[in-house]
Amino acid sequence: MRDYQITAIRPDPHDTDRLIDGLQIEGTIWPIDKVIGWIRSGTHRFWIKVDEKRVPVIVARRWMAGRHFLTTEHEGFPPHRLLALRHVR
């Protein structure tokens, strides 16, 4: 298992329920579903930098819709720390 830093997000302007479409990891944009799969399977771990500290990115589930989403430890929905990252296209 390897740890990766998420440095930016690609917002999803077409789906209001899905705020993030992709994540930039080591210069490559990966689909959010792929990253969720890696975390859920234990293949990789991800983190973001907040105030010079590593904050783990985790998978949570929206109880009403049952849909998985990414957030950071000790945070819920919407994932404000992830949404605060630089936006890329």
Score class of each variant (00 low, 15 high):
28 T>G: 03
50 V>E: 12
68 H>F: 09
26 E>S: 03
29 I>A: 05
28 T>V: 04
28 T>N: 13
29 I>S: 10
77 F>C: 06
27 G>R: 02
15 D>Y: 04
20 I>N: 12
72 T>A: 13
55 V>M: 11
72 T>S: 12
63 W>Q: 07
72 T>C: 13
17 D>A: 08
58 I>Q: 10
72 T>I: 14
36 I>W: 13
24 Q>L: 04
63 W>F: 03
46 F>E: 00
26 E>M: 02
68 H>L: 11
21 D>E: 14
76 G>L: 13
67 R>Q: 08
68 H>N: 11
42 G>M: 00
38 W>N: 13
19 L>R: 15
70 L>K: 03
56 P>W: 13
24 Q>P: 00
79 P>H: 11
80 H>I: 07
47 W>R: 15
76 G>D: 14
81 R>Y: 08
15 D>A: 03
18 R>M: 11
25 I>R: 06
62 R>I: 02
27 G>V: 05
49 K>N: 15
57 V>Q: 12
50 V>Y: 14
81 R>G: 00
74 H>Y: 04
25 I>P: 00
67 R>H: 06
80 H>G: 10
61 R>K: 07
49 K>Q: 11
39 I>R: 03
51 D>Y: 08
71 T>R: 15
43 T>P: 05
22 G>N: 01
66 G>Y: 02
50 V>G: 13
71 T>Q: 06
21 D>Q: 13
44 H>N: 09
17 D>L: 10
58 I>R: 02
64 M>L: 07
72 T>W: 02
38 W>I: 01
52 E>M: 11
61 R>S: 04
67 R>I: 10
39 I>M: 10
42 G>K: 00
14 H>C: 11
34 K>S: 11
70 L>V: 05
57 V>C: 10
75 E>S: 09
66 G>M: 10
25 I>C: 12
20 I>M: 12
43 T>K: 15
44 H>P: 06
65 A>E: 15
49 K>R: 09
18 R>D: 14
55 V>L: 12
57 V>K: 01
51 D>T: 08
36 I>H: 12
30 W>F: 06
53 K>M: 04
53 K>G: 02
45 R>T: 11
17 D>Y: 15
73 E>P: 00
65 A>Q: 12
61 R>V: 11
68 H>D: 09
76 G>F: 09
55 V>Y: 04
20 I>L: 14
70 L>C: 08
23 L>W: 01
52 E>K: 15
33 D>R: 01
33 D>M: 02
26 E>H: 01
62 R>Y: 01
75 E>Y: 05
72 T>F: 04
20 I>D: 15
64 M>G: 09
79 P>F: 08
44 H>Y: 08
48 I>C: 05
28 T>R: 01
38 W>A: 12
21 D>N: 13
59 V>G: 11
40 R>V: 07
41 S>Y: 02
68 H>I: 04
20 I>S: 09
46 F>G: 01
45 R>E: 10
61 R>N: 04
13 P>S: 05
60 A>K: 09
56 P>I: 08
58 I>N: 02
61 R>W: 06
13 P>V: 01
43 T>H: 12
55 V>Q: 14
74 H>P: 03
61 R>T: 10
59 V>H: 14
43 T>R: 14
73 E>C: 08
38 W>P: 01
37 G>R: 02
23 L>M: 12
78 P>R: 06
41 S>G: 03
32 I>Q: 14
46 F>K: 02
14 H>A: 13
58 I>E: 13
